[in-house]
Simulated assay, not measured.
Amino acid sequence: MIPYGRQDITQADIDAVVEVLHSTHLTQGPAVPRFEQAVLSHCQAKHALGVNSATSALHIACLALGLGLGDWLWTTPNTFVASANCGLYCGAQVDFVDIDPRTYNLCPRALEQKLIAAEKAGRLPKIVVPVHLCGQPCDMQAIHALAQRYGFKIIEDASHAIGGKYLGEPIGNCRFSDITVFSFHPVKIITTAEGGMALTNDDKLAERLGLLRSHGITRDSALMTKGMDGPWYYQQVALGYNYRMTDLQGALGASQMNRLEQYVARRHELARRYDELLKDLPVTTPWQHPDGYSGLHLYVIRLQLDRIQETHLQVFEALRAKDIIVNLHYIPVHTQPYYQNMGFQVGQFPEAERYYAEAISIPMYPVMSEAQQDEVVSCLRETLGA
């Protein structure tokens, strides 16, 4: 069986976690700050806050930016539901912007047209969440320029993208956003088992994010409403959540960071090889924008359905029957029953829907061998009759 993604756990990772198990702190110890610092050093941002999932990071990012009742959050329909749900958690309303047909990311031109109409209707978004699908960065310079013009905040959902670059600089530096979010789920580029992180260059936002991830509680006297009663004293100054990352996760993440660039480089080797092996098949391989260096979390092909006899479903099922565990990223969020009950309809975001009708994520991960890659291509070729 060849899965679409797989984590790589080395003895160094195991030793790092075991060291924490033998320590006095399984949580709220030194391992999470060490991991945060490793990510900061790589991304060249000012603040990083580790949390228990990227979903939690998105939630507190929205709250830190003041999203609430009566506000709008816009994102792409071509993403996991968390990129949109984070707005609903805050009581805001959610809408979508269609994708660019080449990058599969939120389209800046579609965003601009939607902003022009929204300004006239008096319902501009408070937050826009561009998603770096598959690790390829969005056109953040264009989106940031629109933010300056229309006054919205930006949360980069970079769950797929740690280790990637935009305009030669690391994704996560927040040059064109207020907050960037990473995911460390097991199939992501590096893992903490479950876990996420929010990065920002804004001191006040970092302070707010820190409160929100841990019950709204502070031991910082500068944030308190009165003097401390004693060394035991703390105050709850906001309504926060228990979104902390454990030291076990932090230790694993810090260890994995030592191999981040190696992992991304290997993904690029595999992607280049796929590009060559698949060039004569009736599929469209991923296009990479010259402004970006993708984290390449996923390698997505699009079936050229007019050139094959099989349906999308038949190809998918045939590959799985051959133990090639392909997947599909993603079902457009606006087509989910929960969102359809809110009034969204099939047909509203046609580029995302066309992508969904053709896309298949084929296996790619750093420890994948060339023999496994050859098997994937052979099975795909056989399935397509090519």
Rank of each mutant, 00 (worst) to 15 (best):
F35D: 02
L167M: 07
V51I: 07
L49C: 14
N341W: 00
N78Q: 11
E112D: 09
L26V: 06
A265I: 07
L319P: 12
N173Q: 15
P332S: 00
F80D: 11
L199H: 07
G385C: 01
H329R: 05
R381C: 03
I325L: 14
T335G: 05
R34E: 15
A82W: 07
L223R: 11
S41Q: 08
H215S: 09
L278S: 03
V94H: 05
T55A: 11
C90N: 05
T246M: 06
L205Q: 11
L124V: 13
T10A: 09
E353I: 08
K165W: 07
V377L: 05
S159V: 03
D157Q: 03
E269G: 06
D71T: 01
K279H: 11
C379S: 15
A48F: 00
A271I: 07
L270Y: 05
E207M: 02
L212T: 04
L281S: 14
D306L: 00
S183H: 00
I99L: 12
L384F: 14
I2A: 02
H312N: 13
I301M: 02
G29N: 05
L384S: 07
T24L: 07
I331V: 08
L63T: 09
H22G: 08
D323P: 03
K46R: 12
H312R: 12
S221E: 08
Q345N: 14
L205S: 07
I99A: 09
Y234I: 13
E119H: 09
H59E: 15
A222I: 08
G295V: 04
P337M: 00
E261W: 01
P186T: 10
V237H: 10
D280N: 12
R109Q: 11
G91F: 06
I324R: 13
A371C: 04
V128Q: 01
I9G: 08
L277K: 10
S369F: 08
Q336F: 06
Y241D: 05
L199K: 13
Q304S: 09
I179H: 04
A110C: 10
A61Y: 02
I116F: 04
H329L: 04
I360F: 14
K120S: 15
Y89M: 13
L281C: 13
Y243G: 03
T225N: 14
V97A: 00
H185A: 04
L239Q: 12
L296W: 05
P33F: 09
V17D: 02
R302M: 06
A16C: 00
E375W: 06
R109P: 03
V32S: 10
F35M: 15
L313F: 10
I331E: 11
R149Y: 01
L205M: 08
S214W: 05
E351V: 10
N173I: 14
E276P: 13
R213C: 10
E19I: 01
P332A: 01
W232I: 06
C138K: 02
R272W: 00
E169Q: 08
G5D: 14
Y263A: 05
T191N: 09
P332Q: 00
H42D: 12
V187A: 04
A386V: 13
A254F: 01
L65H: 05
L63K: 14
S56P: 12
H185V: 00
G385H: 11
G87D: 04
L313K: 14
L239A: 08
R272L: 04
I189W: 01
L303P: 01
F182I: 03
Y89H: 12
G343D: 00
I301P: 01
D178N: 12
R208M: 11
L270E: 06
M245D: 06
A158Q: 06
I360L: 15
T76W: 06
V129I: 11
E358N: 15
